[in-house]
């Protein structure tokens, strides 16, 4: 498992670089690139993902109106924001013209709505891929990779990134697979190109991967879950004692109502505090790595 030392995208420079890569990947045009400032002209499909305006698109589609592509103006720090706002204001006519909307600059920082949407769009678009190493004709070792997050949760949670891959030739499992291949020169490929090289089915590979995930989770320290269970048992005992103490001297109807209330509260406590481990699969990929004799297959 990968222990990332520092969370990414916490600096303005990282966010700018991320946006440049994202908009280039989705086919947006960069119209203006100044220090910590960008203007991107975005395709309609990207526009729909980044800006929430379903009624506008319903109107566009119903009326078959041609639409001007949206230009996103993004400032990545305060200095860029004020500098570019001043520039845009200077370009505006002195007297306001009706219908001439003020052009708005979005300040991009971690947690801003637009940046969250950009991340969500990237996450959605980058969920599955098929890539290979080297040109056509080279001998490949096929891998099925899954990336995701293991969440350990009770009242509160902790998450860790995982990347496991299984070799379709021999069902060998490799941990931290993505970290080993992410800087390699990989290019888009057809799935059939990669699967041609495998002896095992995808179903077998996926079952093997799930087993690996279970083994991984089983190998972790359980103390957090044991502590959570102790707290939950204490809370349930307290709840139970409280309601038991109220049950005397009640009519049948009142008792039934109180018992129902207790059960509801017990269920809520269990939902809140039961320790759970969930493997969230976020990405999957078919990866063909060039065969390198004498080394662990392809990695």
């Amino acid at each position: 498992m990968n222990e990332q030392s520092r969370a990414p995208l916490r600096t303005a420079e990282e966010r700018l670089a991320f946006c440049d890569r994202y908009f280039a990947s989705v086919g947006a045009r960069t119209l203006v690139a100044r220090s910590m400032y960008r203007e991107y002209e975005v395709p309609i499909d990207v526009d729909k993902e980044l800006i929430e305006r379903p009624f506008y698109w319903m109107w566009v589609e119903a009326s078959r109106q041609p639409v001007e592509p949206t230009v996103l103006r993004l400032a990545f720090d305060d200095a860029a924001l004020s500098r570019e706002e001043a520039r845009l204001n200077a370009e505006l006519p002195a007297v306001g013209i009706p219908g001439f909307a003020k052009r708005r600059i979005e300040r991009i920082d971690f947690g801003s709505h637009l940046f969250d949407r950009i991340l969500a769009s990237a996450a959605q678009r980058g969920r599955a891929v098929c890539v290979r190493e080297g040109g056509e004709g080279s001998e490949l070792v096929p891998w099925l990779m899954v990336n995701g997050i293991v969440s350990y949760s009770a009242d509160i949670n902790r998450e860790e990134w995982f990347s496991y891959a299984v070799c379709l030739e021999n069902l060998q499992i490799v941990d931290r697979f993505y970290e080993r291949i992410r800087h390699r020169d990989l290019s888009g490929a057809r799935a059939s190109e990669i699967l041609n090289h495998g002896r095992h089915t995808l179903r077998e590979a996926w079952i093997t991967l799930q087993e690996a995930l279970r083994n991984h989770v089983a190998a972790q320290d359980d103390r957090w879950a044991e502590e959570a269970m102790i707290r939950l048992r204490d809370d349930l005992a307290q709840l139970s004692a409280y309601y038991e103490s109220l049950l005397d001297d009640l009519s049948e109807e009142e008792r039934a109502s109180l018992v129902q209330e207790r059960e509801r509260k017990q269920a809520a406590l269990i939902e809140k505090s039961t320790p759970r481990v969930v493997c969230h699969i976020h990405q999957t990929a078919l990866v063909g790595l060039r065969l390198q004799r004498g080394r662990l297959a392809g990695t």
């Binding site: 969370a7 086919g27 980058g126 891929v129 890539v131 995701g148």
Partner: peptide, 18 residues
């Protein structure tokens, strides 16, 4: 570009992690 988006998606998930 899909591989680039795949790599960006991995960054996004890392960034959101608790």
């Amino acid at each position: 570009a899909d591989w680039e988006l795949f790599r960006l998606a991995a960054i996004a998930h890392h960034a959101w992690m608790s």
